[in-house]
Amino acid sequence: MSLKVQLQDAQKDALRAKAKARLSTLRMVMAAIKQREVDERIELSDEQIIAIITKQVKQRQDAAQQYHDAGREDLAEHELAEIPVLQEFLPKPLTEDEVAELIALAIEQTGASGVGDMGKVMGVLKPQVQGRADMGAISGLVRSKLN
């Protein structure tokens, strides 16, 4: 079953269960998916939907941090409550060992020898770790390995 169908089914279930917060979050994700499909006139693949969900999670984390810094804990809690709903539809996160192994393989595969080759390594890693690990952390690890 495609990820889009899973999201639609979850949205219907949330509607039936009258889970307003969950329904709101799922509607927001479906709206983002639909917007991209209409803008680009394509049917999104699961990988593209995962990228959208990953972006939504990051936006929630950033917004929660900003609300927290501004002393608006009520709004920060609302943003943080949406994150687990979104994460249900992301693949299982990678462990630190799996990430290290993927980085080593990507460096070996691309023949990277310095920080100048970081783009090549990240290009190989991104499809493998999208939605399963924080790309910012991956970038830092790759940079440290290439130094």
Rank of each mutant, 00 (worst) to 15 (best):
E77S: 14
E96C: 03
A104K: 10
G111F: 10
I42M: 06
L26S: 05
P93N: 02
S45G: 04
R72G: 00
I33K: 02
Q61A: 03
M28G: 10
T95R: 05
P84G: 04
D46W: 00
R27A: 03
K92Y: 01
I42F: 00
D97G: 01
G111I: 09
G111R: 06
K55F: 08
Q6N: 12
L90Y: 07
A106D: 13
T95W: 06
E101D: 13
A17V: 04
R36I: 06
P93S: 02
Q6V: 05
I103Y: 04
K20H: 11
R36S: 11
M30V: 03
Y67H: 15
P84W: 02
S113P: 00
I53Q: 04
T25Y: 04
I42P: 00
Q59H: 09
A100Q: 11
V38E: 14
G111T: 08
E47A: 10
E96S: 12
Q61T: 05
V29L: 15
D69N: 11
Q87L: 07
I50K: 01
E37R: 05
D62M: 06
V38N: 08
P93F: 01
K18A: 14
E96A: 14
Q6R: 15
K92Q: 10
A64D: 08
P91R: 03
T95Y: 05
A63R: 12
A104L: 04
K34F: 01
D13M: 13
R60Q: 13
F89S: 07
I33V: 15
L3K: 03
K55M: 10
L44Y: 02
Q56V: 06
A31K: 12
Q8F: 13
A100D: 13
E101T: 12
H68A: 14
E40W: 02
D97Y: 02
G71V: 03
Q35H: 08
K34R: 08
S24F: 10
Q48F: 09
Q65S: 12
A100E: 13
K4E: 08
Q6L: 14
E37W: 05
V57L: 01
Q61Y: 03
A106Y: 09
L94C: 07
E96Y: 05
A17N: 12
S45R: 03
L44E: 01
A17K: 12
Q6W: 09
A14I: 07
A112F: 09
Q66I: 07
L15F: 14
